[in-house]
Every structure is written in C-alpha cells, then in structure tokens.
Computed example of a mutant assay.
Amino acid sequence: MTWSGEQVDLEAYFARIGHQGETAATVATLRALHRAHVASIPFENLDVALGREVPLDLKSLQDKLVRQRRGGYCYEQNSLLAAVLERLGFAVAARGARVRTRGPGLLPVTHALLVVEAGGEQWLVDAGFGAQGVREPVPLHEGVQVEQDGWGFGIERGDEGISVLRSLRQEGWTDLYAFAPQTLYPADFTMMNHYSSTHPLSKFVGQIVAQRYLPGERVVLVRDQLTIVRTDGSSDQRTVSVRDIPDILRSVFGIELSPEDSAELVRVYSTGV
C-alpha cells in the first residue's frame, strides 16, 4: 500500500478521534472521519519549533498523533489520514499546493493535501491546513461552493489544470491555496517536510504555530500572539506570556506536553536560543 495502510491501528485511531460510526468506503464515512479528525487532532509545529526532526513513517505518526495525543502539520496529518483511508478501501492520491494566504508573491509548493475518490467522484480532503482549512471533504468540481459550520469554501479552476481552494470572508472570496493534478507520493512529502522543518524561510522554523477549530471560532497561536476569529467576522488578538504557552497549548489546543518539553519550550522562547 502506498501510505502503509496495512500498518494502521484502526482501533486506536478511532478512539483518538471519537469515531464510532461506519467504516465502509462511502462518502458518509469519509465526511465523518474528516470532521472527527480535524476536531480532535490539532495543527501544531512544536517539534520544528524545538529544532527536532519530524519523522513521517506511520509508526512515528501513530505514536505522536494518536498515542501521545499530540498534533502535527500537513505532512503528518494527511499522511496519517491517507493511511487510514487507504486501509478502509478508499482510493487516495496526494497533491502539492502553493499557499496563497500570504500576499501576491509566488511561493514554493509546500502544502500537502489529499484527493479521495468516493461515491463516484473526487473530493478534496485536507486535515492539515489548520484553522483556515476545510471541516469536511469538498467536491472537486469547478464552481463548487459549500458552507461548513458557518465558514464558506469554494473551488475554482485555473490554467494548466490548476485547482484553487477559496474561502469566503467578510471582504469576499480569498484564495487559500492552488494545486496541480500531479500525484505526489510519500517520498515527495519527505522532501517538502525537510524544507518546511529546516529552511530559514519556512514559516514553521523559529516560531511556535498551533491552530484549532472550536465551535464558531478559529483559534491560532503564532509565537506569542493568540488570535480568535469568529464566523460573524469579529476577532480578538492578545499577546501571551511565554511562560503561559504550555498551559495555553493544553487548555486551548488540547496539546499535552511532557514537563520536560514544556520547560524546553519556555527556555527556547525565553532566551531566543
């Protein structure tokens, strides 16, 4: 299997995300798993922030995201979800995307997402775009617009077969990312992961990033800035003490660090080393 689906501990994964429903390879199952996954496993880059390696083999992913009840970023989240879906009999393919949320500049392909076949059509599946991402699969058709828990998303087609995931905000439609139909594989994730976890231009290097959906809210922590954006367009932002970050990660994002990792996080971001 491409994503090592034969190695998945389905019982542990289902317990982690609280899934007790059907497991047949249907649209309903795909939607339920996607929703449960993004609600239960937060987006975070804490290993990168601490200068650690981010392994993508399934054993390591299950140990971190499932057994340790940690989170991860796109390569981790979507590699794990791809393995689960593959094990359940879904046809799963990966894609690489250029993020468009940081202005008009052309960025490298650094985001990883999935395209899954179910019910006779293709679906955009992405558990790894953090608080701005989709809550459940989106039909991969030109002009599709969906509403998910008060957040709007749409798909547009561009030149050369490019697809664009868009988000509806107070100011109108905004591009999230654009991806080509080329299929990627775990080896491609390894290369992209190396850039994102080590390159000085990566937004994940040198700062804490944690994100989570809450009912009616998107909550984002970047370094020491905690931001809450609501479905009505209102938002709040505040600066948090570095020493409070482990408690915020636990209480807000559901990330329970060991005492040793908490102390190291505080040390690194207190000293800037």
Rank of each mutant, 00 (worst) to 15 (best):
A36D: 14
F43I: 07
V134Y: 00
P55C: 08
L58C: 05
S40Y: 01
H34S: 14
H34V: 08
D63M: 09
L106N: 01
V134T: 15
G128L: 13
L58D: 07
E147V: 13
V48G: 04
S40K: 00
E136F: 00
C74M: 09
R135Y: 13
G133N: 05
L114D: 03
L46Y: 07
A97L: 10
V138K: 00
V125A: 13
E76I: 11
G119I: 10
L140D: 05
T101C: 00
P55H: 12
S79T: 04
A93P: 00
A112F: 14
P104L: 03
P139A: 14
E76Y: 05
R52F: 12
E76P: 02
D126K: 06
L88N: 13
I155V: 15
E121M: 14
G96Y: 05
A36L: 10
R135Q: 13
R35V: 10
Q77R: 01
G119E: 12
V109P: 00
S60R: 04
R52D: 14
P42M: 04
R95W: 01
Q122L: 13
V109N: 01
G133F: 02
R69F: 02
G120D: 11
T101A: 11
A36K: 09
R70V: 11
L124Y: 14
V84S: 02
L114K: 08
C74Q: 01
W151T: 03
A36G: 11
P108K: 02
